[in-house]
Nucleic acid binder design. Structure first.
Lengths: 330, 330
DNA sequence: TTGAAAGCGCTAACAT
DNA sequence: ATGTTAGCGCTTTCAA
């Protein structure tokens, strides 16, 4: 059934030399060990002829490192994470590391299981956007001692974190409307206990209080009809500005507004927390606060590299600035 | 630096039993080997106490299978692939397999390298959306003998393929405009040699010829200004319908049309080959041909499972039907 | 009912 | 300049 793979030993035997010699040569250390040019050539040829593919596991088992970083994402179909994923993978690759990506769908149980599996695979480190409160993860992280970097969503207080200051950014957002709104509707969807979302909401609350703006919050039903009713109801109550708490909610909200024949920005203003590649193509184009996804990804990898060298450095929280994408909806 | 991980042997020694016993018990085969209940309990306790995590590599090395499928994608930031990726990972997981995802960015060289790395990791099989013509991949696939399923983009004639009939779907698309167009502009971007794109184009050519419609094709410049000029130039030449050859091109095209102040569908009609989650939220909503991504993903996994059982079954090409998403732009 | 030992493929210390 | 060998952590056959 399974054609046995060619091993180092096969090459060694075919050539009448030892495994060690072959190993040295194929790892480019032939000269270092003074192996004759002729023999080196012979070995390379034979390896090609037999279509030798080194067994990565055997090597890892022996060397105790896998040159693999686990990447735990909450939702790969969200373009924000997709982009982050892409950049992280590229950056890690350029540093000689592979990335093992898993998608948790914001499911805590699945997250636990998948993390355990990553650890079983002896990954050298883990970059993670945790689902939710990280309480459940702590025991797992304690089972292992590999470096962990939290990305986009914070984790343990004294672990590395790379992301944005959601509270601050949210409170600044309120001042971005061209005309000061009287009543703002903040919209979330799904799990409000996700830390980033609750921080954003808190930021809005604080800032609106200070500036005397009324703030209401709804958590959008996943039932289309109900969601329509929710929004309609709020808008009939003098809401003049909307802040969806992430890009996916913004899209859902825009769809609802369209169905309700409510015009943005005439009837209501809107600024999305989180940008989306399509916002600039929409009518009107959607004003948004853009998270520096490239930087978040790059710095996450950077932190990981430092950790891999020196596991004892204290955790650092790196908070990056967002960029305000001034478009036509506010 | 690296705190050594607890191994089977550590448990065995701590308890004064043999590795074998511990292995049996922890793999749930304690009863099968008539190991006393008491000892089994003791072993489980000790394992927990020492926070034992089995070494997946050692196990794989020994057993010769990894329960891991490699997934090679052309662009994970394209929502089509992101969705496919998500479903494939979920489905494989439910069948006891992990997924190792890599992203090639449609870069042939990178694709080769990444595929080699997957093979080194002794993956049990590979699901792949190849970059381009697969000629370059054939030698690599011949180096190994693991099952390969081509997904979305076809590969070797006699290998498994799950996707759509791009030529047929494209030719049907021409008949979908509400009013028969006189001159259609097909738009691509980046690499036209991607097989799906060239098949779509061919389908359009065939069908337009038959129905006496003029067809022109441009490959959009990645230079914004140039792209604007390209589209403007074509539209001034009596084009009354546009078919972007995939969803990302559709978005780019819509952005250009907006900047040129050309109204869809009044000035020009548009149908996108490939749907996008945001098309229904746009003004006007964008009519599109939707690929059955869920089915493609599910059937790809199904094929892989069959192959893993019986590697000798002949390759099957499974062509699925697209769904026409009737919206407001055509 | 349990233990000893071989071996998966590789690397590196130690011989020669 | 190259070969021998131990051992990474695990499973499994054979022995006791």
């Amino acid at each position: 059934m399974k054609a046995k793979r060619v091993s180092l030993d096969d090459i060694a035997k075919a050539l009448g030399v030892s495994k060690a010699t072959v190993s040295f040569v194929l790892n480019g250390r032939g000269d270092e060990f003074n192996i004759s040019k002729k023999k080196q050539e012979l070995i390379h040829e034979k390896a090609k002829e037999l279509q030798y593919v080194p067994n990565f596991f055997a090597k890892s088992l022996r060397q105790g490192e896998t040159k693999t970083i686990g990447l735990v994402l909450a939702d790969i179909s969200n373009p924000f994470y997709a982009e982050m994923c892409k950049i992280i993978q590229e950056t890690l690759y350029s540093k000689g590391y592979n990335t093992f990506i898993v998608n948790t769908n914001d499911d805590k149980e699945l997250e636990k299981t998948l993390m355990r599996e990553l650890i079983q695979r002896s990954i050298d480190g883990m970059i993670i956007s945790p689902c939710n409160t990280i309480d459940a993860l702590i025991p797992i992280l304690h089972e292992t001692h590999i470096p962990v970097v939290f990305s986009d969503r914070p984790g343990d207080e004294n672990a590395d974190f790379v992301g944005i200051d959601n509270m601050k950014e949210a409170s600044l957002l309120i001042g971005k409307f061209k005309n000061k709104p009287k009543k703002i509707l903040a919209i979330s969807q799904h799990d409000t206990s996700i830390q980033t979302i609750s921080e954003r909401l808190q930021g809005l609350k604080d800032a609106s209080k200070k500036s005397g703006i009324e703030l209401v919050h709804i958590n959008l039903s996943s039932e289309r009809k109900e969601a329509l009713a929710q929004v309609k109801n709020e808008l009939s109550n003098h809401v003049d500005a909307i802040i969806p708490l992430n890009n996916m909610v913004a899209l859902a909200t825009l769809g609802i507004l369209q169905e309700l024949k409510i015009n943005v920005p005439n009837d209501v203003k809107l600024i999305s927390f989180d940008d989306h590649e399509v916002f600039s193509f929409m009518t009107p184009s959607v004003t948004a606060l853009r998270q520096p996804v490239n930087k978040i990804a790059a710095i996450s990898v950077e932190r990981m590299m430092e950790r891999l060298k020196e596991s004892q450095v204290p955790g650092k929280h790196q908070l990056l600035e967002c960029e305000f994408m001034e478009r036509g909806s506010h």
